[in-house]
């Protein structure tokens, strides 16, 4: 009996220690790697990175101005495609859909969310790049836009769902029609959550590389308009990291650093906004 009590206590302490160690390891590994990226990336960064075009092969220096603008354009397009569809789809799901429709659409959304990003790249290549005959900013935007839809749908639906029934009933009781109640009462009540959900969604696709390989491709120069292939930050990280030149490696670290700061910055901001109130879905975002 005594020995059992001892073993029971020892096991308790041992397992708290072991699981604590797991946590420590998880944290330590991730912080080591990201810390390395930050120190290496920050030291590789200079003003030219933001203002200059890539230097020709063999020359030292140059920047990534075209990739930064390219990423911006692709992401703008992606947001314009993905967010309206996702948002309106989410409104439909929460406000209008019957049980069967809701199930079907939710299922399709989950399915879309799980599609590996490289597969999205293939499909957009077949649907956009191939018929157009060339790679383009537009195709890249379409690929990332498709990737934005599912998260946008689910976060819209969840945050709308979290708006209390009483608020809805109050609006309807005052004689508002259904869509007026949705537009003037329900969406405003959920807007903070929906906006942060969109920000997280944006941050997620901002770092996507695989779908851009066959859509936006890359470019050593400026890409005018929407119809030409373009450089993007994640693509630059990939190609420059694999190159044979030391100076390109430096550029890859700098691009990786900028990308990481962008993604983490948006994430932290969104989570801070979210923690300051708003009706929250019970499951967490």
């Amino acid at each position: 009996m005594k020995s059992f009590v001892f073993r029971k206590k020892a096991m308790n302490i041992l397992m708290i220690g072991l699981t604590g160690l797991c946590t420590l390891m998880t944290g330590a590994i991730l912080f080591f790697f990201l810390g390395y990226l930050v120190s290496r990336g920050a030291s590789s960064l200079n003003w030219a990175f933001f203002t200059k075009l890539p230097a020709p092969v063999g020359e030292i220096g140059g920047g990534m101005a075209n990739a930064i603008v390219g990423s911006g354009k692709v992401l703008l397009l992606a947001t314009l495609i993905g967010v309206p569809i996702g948002f309106l789809g989410g409104v439909y799901l929460n406000e209008y859909a019957g049980a069967t429709m809701a199930f079907v659409i939710r299922y399709a959304t989950d399915l879309l969310n799980g599609v590996p990003s490289i597969v999205i790249g293939i499909v957009v290549y077949a649907l956009v790049v191939h018929p157009m005959g060339h790679f383009s900013t537009f195709a890249g935007g379409v690929a990332l836009g498709i990737m934005m839809i599912p998260i946008s749908v689910r976060s819209t639906e969840e945050f709308l769902h979290a708006v209390p029934m009483s608020l809805r009933e109050a609006a309807i009781a005052l004689g508002a029609s259904k869509w007026k109640a949705i537009v003037t009462v329900i969406i405003p009540a959920a807007i903070r959550g929906i906006v942060t959900g969109t920000m997280l969604d944006f941050a997620r696709v901002a770092g996507e590389t695989a779908p851009l390989l066959f859509t936006a491709l890359g470019n050593q120069f400026w890409s005018p308009g929407w119809n030409h292939e373009t450089a993007t930050l994640p693509f630059v990280v990939y190609t420059y990291a694999l190159s044979a030149y030391q100076d390109w490696h430096r550029q890859a670290w700098a691009a990786g650093f900028v990308l990481l700061m962008l993604v983490l910055g948006i994430n932290v901001t969104a989570r801070l906004i979210l923690s300051r109130g708003s009706y929250r879905p019970s499951g967490g975002a």
Binding site: I85, G89, T109, L112, V115, V123, L127, S177, W179
Partner: peptide, 30 residues
């Protein structure tokens, strides 16, 4: 606005279905 709002959201939801099916269809056909 009542019907317009409904149709608009329905269209968005249908687009999601369409895209998802299209992905599978393209992969299968190609």
């Amino acid at each position: 606005g009542e019907e317009a709002a409904y149709l608009l959201t329905l269209a968005a939801a249908a687009t999601i279905l369409l895209i998802t099916s299209l992905i599978f269809y393209e992969l299968y056909v190609q």
